[in-house]
């Protein structure tokens, strides 16, 4: 019944329980068949197929690690020249390709307000190469490069993007698929650079049972660790769903990457999450007053 909406094919090589494959599938369903995808080295590159296989039913271009955004910009401009204005250009990159290696080129494309949807599939480390920390890895989290827990904070990527005054930026999670797909459809309505930051739990790198992918994504939201909101024109913040505010312990305790945490450290994370949430509320209310 839904097969005509399905753009991600079966038989791809994602690990069992992969959150990223769920996100790609949902984003592609929401965008539809009139689309061209850009893929850069990452788990997405594996999922979308190694030569000669393809998991996508729309054309996809494998580009270099650092240039997801400019590649999409180029394709988008070429389509405009050919007057094919009904085709959506979609850039998929991981947190490594967005937060770290692709940040400079993304900034340039966003500054020029190139017309594409950029989807950051954030699994909070370089999972494809073997779980090395990225600037998206949350503090105190274990990775192979941070065996005692990461010292640095998680980069506030959304604020960097928002600082470019892009027409639409939003966070989404696979835990709430309807919300995710609605945001992708909303992004399609805007001209210019649209940015969607999707939290994609990774059972392998987060050291948890495969079956927990969906539940952990919901918990990330409900504990306020990953709030759902959107920002229009770099100005108007809107919280799209209000979390229950469960203790972060519920989220941390079922992930092996946080199993070394002491009570004090969990408390510290709780405090930081609460501060970040207050900050988001401040940003959302600031607009209401104007």
């Amino acid at each position: 019944m839904d097969t005509q909406d399905e753009i991600l094919r079966k038989g791809h090589y994602a690990c069992p329980g992969c959150g990223l494959a769920i996100a790609m599938r949902l984003v592609l369903r929401a965008v539809g068949r009139k689309a061209i995808a850009v893929i850069v080295p990452s788990c997405e590159a594996v999922i979308s197929g190694t030569y000669p296989f393809s998991a996508l039913e729309v054309p996809a271009f494998h580009s270099a690690f650092a240039i997801a955004a400019p590649t999409a910009a180029g394709i988008s401009r070429a389509l405009k020249i050919r007057k094919e204005t009904d085709v959506t250009v979609l850039a998929f990159a991981g947190d490594g390709g967005t937060y770290d290696i692709g940040l400079q080129s993304l900034s340039g494309a966003a500054e020029r307000n190139e017309d594409f949807i950029y989807v950051c599939l954030d699994n909070e480390a370089y999972m494809n190469t073997g779980i090395q920390a990225s600037s998206s890895t949350p503090p105190l989290s274990w990775t192979v490069t941070t065996p005692k827990g990461k010292v640095e904070k998680k980069k506030r990527l959304m604020e960097i993007i928002v600082a470019h005054s892009v027409p639409y930026a939003a966070t989404a999670t696979i835990g709430y698929p309807q919300d995710l797909m609605e945001k992708v459809k909303r992004a399609k309505e805007f001209q210019g650079t649209k940015f969607i930051h999707v939290l994609t739990p990774c059972p392998t790198g987060w050291k948890m049972k495969e079956e927990l992918t969906g539940v952990i994504a919901m918990l990330a939201f409900e504990t306020k660790v990953f709030p759902l909101y959107e920002v229009i024109n770099g100005e108007i913040y809107r919280i799209t769903k209000v979390p229950k505010g469960l203790p972060v312990r519920d989220y941390l305790s079922i992930q092996g990457r946080f199993s070394h945490l002491s009570e004090d450290e969990i408390e510290k994370i709780q405090q930081e999450v609460d501060i970040e949430w207050e900050r988001l509320i401040y940003l959302a209310k600031r607009h209401e007053k104007v």
Binding site: K10, G11, H12, Y13, A55
Partner: peptide
């Protein structure tokens, strides 16, 4: 450049579990 044309559905990944 090389173009991937074979659908991944050729892989019966259900055999993994």
């Amino acid at each position: 450049m090389p173009v991937s044309k074979t659908p991944t559905s050729a892989h019966k990944t259900g055999l993994w579990g």
